[in-house]
Design a protein around this nucleic acid. Structure first.
Length: 145
DNA sequence: GCCAACGTTGGC
DNA sequence: GCCAACGTTGGC
């Protein structure tokens, strides 16, 4: 299983909206960046991703799971763009802010810090564990630790 | 609301 | 195929 991070402006698509979609999940449409798209193409069913609120909130607020492989983006008028579908698994017991991520030397190489403009990013297993720990979440059960 | 970073577009 | 102009993202 691979780990990722998905950014969303809560004004456009928030964690609460994602949760409301339940098991159906929601297509991660609207991405118009090749690197981000390529990351989505590399995603497999069951891969997990942090749900990050950009612009407002600036924090990892929950965990989602890839429930459909990359497929043509219905919001694109162009065949170049496609996207995966994700469903909410669990909220972070405590949101992990960008500030905290930046302040943690273990996360100095994390994409969120290094390539902060990228909206779909890979997350290393060690980084995944560390962010879970900071958020008070058990990475195995996704329950409060 | 500003501005820096950076990806994309398009002319040559 | 290069590179300047431009647009967008996103933190502050």
């Amino acid at each position: 299983m691979q780990y990722w991070l998905l950014k969303s402006e809560p004004d456009a698509w928030s964690w609460d909206q994602q949760v409301a979609k339940g098991e159906t999940g929601e297509m991660w449409s609207g991405v118009r960046n090749y690197t981000a798209r390529n990351h989505m193409r590399a995603m497999k069913l069951g891969d997990r991703a942090f749900f990050y609120h950009s612009n407002e909130g600036l924090a990892v607020v929950g965990v989602v799971e890839v429930c459909a492989l990359s497929a043509p983006d219905p919001t694109a008028d162009d065949v170049r763009w496609d996207c995966v579908t994700v469903k909410a698994l669990a909220p972070m017991p405590r949101p992990v802010t960008l500030k905290e991520v930046k302040a943690n030397p273990k996360l100095a190489e994390m994409s969120l810090v290094v390539s902060f403009r990228l909206s779909v990013q890979p997350v290393l297993p060690a980084e995944w564990k560390e962010v879970c720990r900071m958020g008070g979440m058990d990475p195995k059960t996704l329950k409060a630790a």
